[in-house]
């Protein structure tokens, strides 16, 4: 696969951007883990906070999706 140096840089950048997904993974795990810890301490309050859990997961995950998007843009659009 012979490409130019710009393409090589783009691919390396895409790979680097994928590291952001790890951060999102840590974040989502943190949210879910803390929810579980709280839910085990007070199970009666757990059900009312499920919506908050999903909102939190969505916010944490959105940032991982941004890094994924950057990777895709570098791969295919630049």
């Amino acid at each position: 696969m012979e490409g130019d140096i710009v393409q090589m840089g783009a691919f390396i950048g895409a790979g680097l951007a994928c590291m952001g997904m790890g951060g999102a993974a840590v974040g989502v795990g943190n949210v879910a883990g803390n929810y579980l810890a709280g839910a085990l301490r007070n199970p009666s309050a757990a059900a009312s906070q499920t919506a908050t859990l999903f909102i939190g997961i969505a916010f944490a995950e959105a940032l991982g999706i941004f890094s994924f998007l950057v990777a895709l843009l570098l791969m295919f659009a630049v």
């Binding site: 969505a58 995950e61 959105a62 999706i65 941004f66 994924f68 895709l72």
Partner: peptide
């Protein structure tokens, strides 16, 4: 931005 990219990104990523 996050509202739209979250949905599109998730769908796109999984299918890809």
């Amino acid at each position: 931005v996050s509202h739209s990219i979250r949905l599109a990104g998730n769908m796109m990523a999984g299918h890809a």
